[in-house]
Nucleic acid binder design. Sequence first.
DNA 1: TAGATAATTAGATGATAATCTAAATAAAAT
DNA 2: ATTTTATTTAGATTATCATCTAATTATCTA
Lengths: 96, 96
Amino acid sequence: MQETPKQESLFTAIADMQRRKILALLKQGEMSVAEIKANFEFSGATLSHHLKILKQAELVRVRRQGQQRIYTLNLSVAEELMLLMNQLLRKRESNE
Amino acid sequence: MQETPKQESLFTAIADMQRRKILALLKQGEMSVAEIKANFEFSGATLSHHLKILKQAELVRVRRQGQQRIYTLNLSVAEELMLLMNQLLRKRESNE
DNA sequence: TAGATAATTAGATGATAATCTAAATAAAAT
DNA sequence: ATTTTATTTAGATTATCATCTAATTATCTA
C-alpha cells in the first residue's frame, strides 16, 4: 500500500491543532469565516491559511454567500481519512 | 473537549510519512531497528529520531534483546488514537 | 461611485522539525 | 581486553510551517 499525495495532504491537514479545532467547530454545522474566527486569537490571514490547507485536503468545502464564505465539513473525505487511519493502525482489513 | 498534550503528541507522531510507514511495518509484527531500517533510505540516526517520537507518543514499545532493540506497535494507544480521530471527524458520539 | 465589510493573497519572520555526520553507549564475539 | 555490531545521542544544517502586517479582491450599501 503506497501513500498518495492526496492521502498525505489529509494527514498534513490534521497535524495542526488549530486546524483540528476548526474541524471540530465545523462538525457542529456550517460557519462563515468570521464565525470561525470568533473562536481564535490569531489573525484573519492565518485563519485563511489554515482554511486553505483544509480545502486542499478537501476536508472542507466553501460556498459564497454575499461577501461571506461559508465553510462546511466534507463528510465523505472525513470518512476516507477514518478509513486510512484504520488501515494504518488496526488489524489488517484489506491491506497491501 | 480540550486536547491534552498526550493527544497532541499522537497527532504529531502520525504527521510524518516516514513514521506512518514505520507504523505500517510494525503492524505486521515486531521488528528490530535494523529490520526497520532495511525499509528506508535515511540514516540510522534519523530512524532513531523517528522512533523516539513514536515512543514518546507511546504508539510503540521497545524491549531489549541482546544488542538489538525490538519495537512493537502499542495496540491500545493505536485504538485510543482511532477514538480521537472518530471524535474529531464523525457525527457526535459522546463529545463535549 | 465611494466607502465599508469580508476574506484572501503576498511577502517576511521566527519557530519547529527532518535530516546528516560524528561521537557515545552498550552488548557480543574474538 | 579489544574489536565489532547495534543503536542512541549531540550538535549542526536545511526545509517546512505558523504567524504577522500590508496589500488586494470582491461584494454590499449609502
